[in-house]
Amino acid sequence: MTGTAAVLGALSVLALAAGPGLAGLVQTAKARLQGRRGADPLQPYRDLRRLWRRSVVDPEGTGAAYRTAPAVIAAVTAAAVLMVPLGADAPRWPFLGADALLVVGLLATARMAGAVSAWDTSAAFGMMGAARDLAYAVSGEALLLGTLLVAALPAGTTDLRGLWAAAAQAETWRTPAHWAGLLAVALVVLVETGRQPIDNPDTHLELTMIHEGPLLEYAGRDLAMLTWVAGARHWIVMGLAAGVFLPHPSGAAAGAVVTVAWLPVLAAATALAESSQAKMRLGRAPRLLASGAVLTLLGAVAWAFGAGL
């Protein structure tokens, strides 16, 4: 491992702690857009510390699926955080590799663990959220994979470091495929962070919940882990969007700095997107995601026609 790789690896590990801050940034920006002062971006850390000191609750009638779900979800999410590309020289974790499709798979595993824990409690709101989450994931996964496809075509690889390097190349920006991916990845950010118009993380209406539904039963450290996961997902998808689709210099130090610098920008953009529209009706959101996926297909077709190169 070279020195650069070591530094980038250390950065990835630091990223494990940075996710909640990114979510806090979105919340602060949203509060500002709503005419409020709001809590500062560090609030999620205070919440996590508070939750960590509280007791957990095991609802009667639940078993291992409920009890292990937060740990499983946190573990796979942590693995996905480590994989977020911060540079072409980033380390390939010997136990994970650096393949983009694995990130998709890890997110899906977390989703499944959440759904299974919802079935374990069999409480209506958890079930409702899990069912919606999985239903949205049908077109959501197509969108995500389509996005990675149009990134992988110009890059010639699904290695996240290769995708990062490709986004630093001017030629990549001349392909319609990349631009299609750039548009589609905006939707990916909204859907994977559970934000409007797909989901509303601040909702207090139990009948409309998606990601919040299965959380309703959890307390204490379980909830702390799941809250951390919600923040870490911001880092994962915004990091993917920045590393794979947004422009950055190809040099190791400058590239990593610019990639990370994109994240607050994306957080602010997310807050703005969330504040400017209502949540979509159930059943319509999957169609929006599917149209995003079709957009990426057009990008792939354009690539196959050799357009732009």
């Binding site: 857009l33 709503q34 409007q196 509303n200 601040d202 909702t203 209406l205 969330e274 209502a278 949540k279």
Partner: peptide, 16 residues
């Protein structure tokens, strides 16, 4: 009604 669809700025403006 704005809160019902998650349109927070509408919620807040009419609340003020």
């Amino acid at each position: 009604i704005c809160a019902g669809v998650g349109l927070a700025p509408g919620t807040m403006l009419f609340a003020t």
